[in-house]
């Protein structure tokens, strides 16, 4: 759980994907790789071995594609907020934000031994709607969060 806060009865939990490389780091890495690869390929092209150049370009396209995928997932995160009667589950995945609002009186936490995101899967369910969460939490953290959520939903 990256962040949890409580203010005047409100409850908020935020968790995000672990990325050890910052956006700036990604750019530096790509530019350094591009510079080395293109310098080498251009030098050989100038010596007459120009076939090296297209292969270097193809490789850089693949590398940039890989980094774009990383970039798209870099902001992946999810949050659960309980405020008054409202329980809000927000997920951000590949830049798309989805918001699921539940009534605090009706919603309940579903726990499975084997879930989408781990051995201890969590979901919010109400009126036939179900939203999984806990993608960025360890099983230990998920257990802790379930206990906390159930307590808050019950105590209300």
């Amino acid at each position: 759980m990256n962040h949890a806060e409580e203010a005047q009865g409100a409850f908020h939990v935020f968790s995000s994907r672990n990325d050890s490389l910052s956006p700036k780091g990604r750019r530096i890495f790509f530019v350094s790789m591009l510079a080395v690869s293109l310098t080498v390929a251009t030098a050989w092209a100038l010596q007459g071995a120009w076939y090296v150049l297209p292969f270097a370009l193809i490789e850089m396209v693949v590398l940039s594609g890989a980094l774009v995928i990383v970039e798209r997932h870099a902001d992946d995160c999810e949050s659960i907020s309980i405020d008054g009667d409202r329980v809000l589950v927000e997920r951000r995945e590949r830049g798309r934000v989805s918001r699921h609002c539940f009534d605090r009186h009706w919603v309940h936490v579903v726990v499975r031994e084997s879930g989408k995101y781990g051995q201890y899967g969590l979901a919010m369910r109400s009126h036939g709607r179900e939203v999984c969460f806990g993608a960025f939490l360890s099983d230990e953290q998920r257990r802790h969060l379930v206990a906390e959520l159930r307590k808050r939903l019950r105590d209300y």
Partner: peptide
Amino acid sequence: YLLIAVMPVLAGAVTM
């Protein structure tokens, strides 16, 4: 890093 830097050179050589 080394592999990414030199593999296009091999690919170019054998394609030539």
